[in-house]
Design a protein around this nucleic acid. Structure first.
Lengths: 121, 121
DNA sequence: AAACATAGTATCCTTTTGGATACCTTAATA
DNA sequence: TATTAAGGTATCCAAAAGGATACTATGTTT
């Protein structure tokens, strides 16, 4: 860690933080391209307002691309940008660490829903 | 990314997210062990309430250790746990990606305070 | 003429997060 | 006896994030 790594960390976190960002990214990464309404269906419980807001933030960060078809009724497609693909290893790292951490927490505090992966004997 | 990586990502993020967590961790990583009051001095602007709250969360996650000396006036020392040391590579990754991303954003939107690192010619 | 489809906004409200300030404890000290 | 030190809590308030609901635009279909 260098001197002012805090702000760069916080910048990085902006992309993942927000109630719905991880699942939006997950949906787009696994499905490639989705329309607004398809995202809504893929993410139960999200409102239009939140979906729009989070997508706009991701768009600002050049992680998500928004393609508008000028037709009626409207059609808008969302996808991960080429630059956005580059975030995959980071998400992977975070996800893996998170998985190990969930396990660590369950070892500390004792949790009934322990996934017995290699603690079988 | 696997099926329900979202929750593990969010669990991982809990450790970094919060107004003061990154700088608290940075202070402890670089200084080793700090008393409550030393942390307060090291982090300008933070209130006791916030410092306590964030430290308690980090303690819950077994990232930070809290050592209480039973004396008066009180003395409490905070440090990174051994388990907590293991988060270093993750923080490193996030920080590096964040740094690159700040640069990417400045390339897209044009920013006066571009750090010319390898774009010198 | 009314209803429909799609991708949003606008408005209002609730919850969560963060911050300011005062207060507490207890032994040693002035 | 009043202060001080250190590490907090308690209380109250402001700001930010999130959510429910209604409304808009407009060409096509009924």
């Amino acid at each position: 860690m260098e001197d002012h790594s805090n702000c760069t960390i916080e910048t990085a976190l902006e992309i993942l933080v927000g109630k719905w960002k991880p699942i939006i990214l997950y949906s787009l990464f696994t499905n490639g391209t989705l329309r607004f309404s398809e995202l809504q269906k893929a993410i139960p419980g999200i409102t239009k307002k939140m979906l729009t807001a989070q997508l706009r933030e991701l768009e600002y960060h050049d992680i998500v691309h928004r393609k508008v078809y000028l037709q009626i009724p409207p059609k808008v497609e969302y996808s991960i940008t080429e630059y956005g693909q580059g975030i995959t290893p980071l998400i992977q790292s975070i996800s893996e660490w998170g998985q190990a951490h969930v396990k660590h927490l369950s070892e500390i505090y004792g949790d009934n829903r322990i996934l017995k992966t290699e603690t079988t004997e």
